[in-house]
Design a protein around this nucleic acid. Structure first.
Length: 381
DNA sequence: AAATCTCTCAACCGCCGCTGT
DNA sequence: GACAGCGGCGGTTGAGAGATT
């Protein structure tokens, strides 16, 4: 095994020992850190300056808060990330006692997965387009058909014709991505491109997490004595900065008209995910709708319909195809509880795509977190 | 009880921007 | 302006702990 250049130089790497920690603490308490490059030599440590700086900044600093993130901290991280993106140091500056490294780790191991399960793309903070597109197609083609289940796309006269092979292809893509258990995947960038004349989908994704001056200005107008602008509203607005005010107004209206996240078990149809479809803009789709879509796609009813569809497809193709359980694949974290594990008779209800249990750390009031007042244009307090 | 898998997070690495010469 | 040194940042890794088979 070859040693790294640092080890060759006699510099130690890897986990710090309590003795090393104590040396570093003692030195900095006496002299301050000064130049990190010269610190290890002066402190009698066989470490590089960078390693000392990181150890101090991420672990030994006296003002570091340790332990689990509180619910408020988690909300703050999500809110700040929706504005700042992966600017971990800036986010950390708004969370006293937390380090950028800690927040980054927490985001990658916890929050990202939660958002994904809720049907929210953790990169863009917008509804997952794969889920929405699938649900919308099925909503249009299946549930709006006659009560006795038929396949309107097969007859296809006078209706919007959905090609079943396209639908199955979409399902296949979705499921393959889901089963890879990768929350980073964002499907259907083409939808973004089709629905945004100003910016292509890839441009939008590249441009995030940088936020425009307009977005920052708008955020600065969020004051506690004004009606709180929810995370949901903020995200909807963020997804279409060119039309932000309009989006915010509509979102507020939507809140007034219909409470979010009604339980699918009490509904006969999938929610109409395109109820703003006269504007044909993907950004009109709300987080709540995406969450509802996740619930629908995970429901036993949907699963049976899907299997019917597959059987029908088999008849057309004269090929056998085993039944499968979509809902189990929709969960990005198989080891944790997912909607698929809960049948319709369960007393557990879903709120914004999570179970009541999950709300312990990701509560229903998540959608009403407002950004700190003093956030300036660089994201610092 | 052992083997295997999954998750967490401290630490490392490479890059970038700032500053001084 | 070019260069070097330095600190800071974000992405990634891998060891260890815990969970599962």
């Amino acid at each position: 095994m070859t040693k790294s250049s640092s080890e060759k130089n006699g510099l130690k790497k890897g986990p710090w020992t309590p003795e090393e920690d104590q040396k570093l603490i003692d030195y900095i308490q006496k002299h301050g850190h000064g130049k990190w490059r010269t610190l290890p030599k002066n402190a009698g440590l066989k470490r590089c300056g960078k390693s000392c700086r990181l150890r101090w900044a991420n672990y030994l600093r006296p003002d570091i808060k340790r332990g689990r993130f509180s619910f408020e901290e988690e909300e703050a991280i999500i809110q700040l990330h929706s504005v700042l993106g992966n600017k971990w140091s800036t986010i950390a500056a708004n969370l006293p006692g937390r380090t950028d490294n800690e927040i980054k780790n927490y985001w990658n191991t916890h929050i990202k997965k939660k958002l994904f399960k809720m049907g929210i793309d953790p990169v863009t903070h917008t509804p997952r387009l794969d889920v929405l597109q699938l649900a919308s197609i099925l909503n249009t083609s299946l549930f709006n058909s006659s009560p006795q289940f038929t396949y309107p796309f097969l007859s296809g006269v006078g209706r919007s014709v959905i090609n079943p092979s396209q639908l199955l292809s979409l399902l296949s893509t979705l499921l393959s991505c889901q089963s890879r258990n990768n929350p980073d995947i964002v499907l259907n960038h083409n939808s973004y491109q089709q629905n945004n004349n100003q910016l292509s989908g890839s441009t939008l994704l590249q441009n995030q997490p940088q936020c425009s001056q307009m977005q920052l200005d708008t955020l600065q107008t969020f004051q506690p004595n004004q009606p709180q602008v929810s995370l949901q509203e903020n995200l909807i607005a963020k997804s279409n900065p060119l039309n932000m005010e309009h989006q915010l107004m509509k979102s507020k209206l939507e809140h007034q008209i219909s409470p979010v996240a009604t339980s699918f078990s009490h509904q006969n149809t999938l929610p109409n995910l395109w109820h703003y479809n006269n504007e044909d803009n993907i950004s009109d789709l709300s987080i709540a709708q995406s969450s509802s879509a996740m619930q629908c796609l995970s429901s036993p009813k949907f699963n049976s319909i899907l299997n019917n569809l597959l059987e029908n497809q088999n008849l057309c193709n004269n090929e056998g195809m085993p039944n499968f359980n979509l809902s189990s694949l929709l969960s990005s974290t198989p080891s944790s509880s997912s909607p698929s594990t809960l049948n319709s008779s369960s007393s557990t209800t879903f709120v914004n795509g999570t179970t009541e249990d999950e709300r312990d750390t990701y509560g229903s009031n998540m959608l009403t977190y407002s950004i700190s007042n003093g956030l300036n244009n660089s994201g610092l307090l």
